[in-house]
Amino acid sequence: MIDWKKLDDKDMLKAIAEDHSDKTFVIFKHSTSCSISAMALNRLERSWNGDEMDKVDAYYLDLLSYRDISNAIADKFGVDHESPQVLVIKNGQCIYNNSHMGINYQSLKEQV
């Protein structure tokens, strides 16, 4: 089970971008009205292994409620907006991103 933190404030995004510890952040951008997004989220949650990902902070962004934060993510990390989309952030940089059916646990795990 993923221990999601709700990304609902630009200050949270700023803290993620400015973190230069060994911490890894995963941001999942989810459209609550999209069936593909729901399927990608479900696949990720079913595969997630908390023991393997214990050093990862996972953030969930509801795109419909917080589009401004999604836009800020695109600007800050230089990644075109897509939905659904997953980003891996380390040392203030986006080191990996994928969208739609390209979102999978194994690829995320390889980045950690």
Rank of each mutant, 00 (worst) to 15 (best):
I95Q: 04
S47Y: 07
S99Y: 12
M53C: 01
D54T: 06
W48N: 10
R46Y: 01
M39T: 09
I95P: 03
C94A: 13
F25A: 05
D54I: 03
L13D: 03
S65F: 12
F28A: 01
Y96H: 01
R46M: 03
L13R: 09
K5C: 03
D80M: 02
A72P: 07
Q93W: 04
K109E: 01
M12I: 02
N98W: 12
D9R: 07
Y60H: 11
Y60N: 02
D80C: 00
I73L: 05
G92D: 11
I27M: 00
D22L: 13
D54K: 15
Y66E: 04
K55G: 10
D80N: 04
Y105H: 12
D11T: 06
F28C: 01
N91L: 07
D8P: 02
S107Q: 14
Q106E: 11
K55H: 09
I69Q: 13
E110F: 05
S21K: 08
F28R: 06
A40G: 08
K5W: 03
M12W: 00
H30D: 04
S33M: 07
Q85V: 00
S37I: 00
Q85Y: 01
V112F: 07
D11G: 04
D62Q: 06
I89N: 09
A15N: 15
W48F: 02
E18M: 05
D68M: 14
M53N: 12
A74Q: 06
H30M: 13
Y96E: 04
S99P: 01
C94P: 14
A15G: 08
W48E: 00
Y59T: 07
S107W: 11
K109W: 01
K6S: 11
I27E: 00
I89T: 14
K23H: 14
D51T: 01
L61F: 01
D75A: 11
D3A: 15
I16N: 15
G50F: 10
M12N: 05
I2P: 15
P84G: 07
I16T: 04
K109A: 12
D11H: 10
V79I: 11
G102V: 04
R67W: 08
M101D: 10
M12P: 00
S107N: 15
M53I: 04
N91K: 10
M101Y: 15
L63S: 03
K76C: 06
L44P: 03
L7S: 05
V26I: 12
D9S: 08
E45M: 14
I73Y: 05
N42P: 04
D54N: 15
R46H: 09
H20Q: 08
I2R: 14
L63P: 12
S21W: 07
I73C: 11
F77R: 01
K90V: 10
R46W: 04
L41G: 12
T32R: 02
D8F: 03
M39K: 04
K55N: 12
V56Y: 01
A40R: 12
Q106C: 02
C94K: 06
D80R: 03
A40M: 09
N104Q: 12
I89S: 08
N91M: 00
D57N: 07
D19K: 11
E110I: 11
G78C: 06
L61A: 00
N42K: 11
P84A: 02
W48P: 03
E52K: 04
D51M: 02
S47A: 15
S47K: 15
R43M: 06
L7R: 06
